[in-house]
Computed example of a mutant assay.
Amino acid sequence: MGPSMAPTLENGDQLLVRYGGAVRPGQVVVLRHPFQQDLLVVKRAAERRAGGWWVLGDNPYNPTGDSTDYGAVPDELVLATALARFRPRQRPEHAPEDHRSLRAWLSWVSSALRPLRADSSASSRLRAR
């Protein structure tokens, strides 16, 4: 994952997904890139259009690699909706000294697994672009 979905997702995050099922505006989805179908992409479904789903990244400072580049994504390329994200903990030998404490471990435990809720502001961000 690149920076386009920050702050919702960070590089290295893992996703719990549900394949199939209905997509609703505001949900985080996993899709095949329309021009490079062996590449999986994670974006937010902003709205339904005639050609499929208009998808956007959450990071307004990195507006590339979404429907503004390749248009609406056909339904058959939207594979799954993301239910939750898991943020793995850095290995202790690679973590800074202050990340090895009990306090740092408890902080990680409290934030490692988070549900991904639909963001209703996705369509308003679309109108702002």
Results as ranks from 00 to 15, higher is better:
D98P: 00
T81S: 14
G65A: 05
V23F: 07
N59P: 03
P88R: 07
A50V: 10
V42Q: 10
V17W: 10
R89D: 05
P3R: 10
G2P: 00
A128I: 07
E93H: 09
A80N: 04
D119T: 03
L56C: 01
R87Q: 14
S123P: 00
P92W: 14
S110P: 00
A22T: 13
A6Y: 13
G20H: 12
N59A: 06
L56G: 02
D13M: 04
A6V: 09
E10N: 10
K43W: 03
D66M: 01
H94Q: 15
A22Y: 00
P25I: 03
P34W: 06
L39H: 12
L102M: 09
P92K: 11
A82G: 08
V42T: 15
V109A: 14
P25G: 06
L77Q: 15
T81L: 05
R129T: 06
R103Q: 13
L116H: 08
L31A: 14
V23I: 14
E76T: 04
D58E: 11
P96S: 12
G12L: 12
W105G: 01
G57W: 04
D13T: 02
M5P: 01
V73M: 03
S111H: 15
S101V: 09
S111V: 04
A112P: 01
A84S: 13
T64A: 10
R85Q: 12
R87M: 07
L83S: 02
A128F: 10
T81D: 08
G71Q: 04
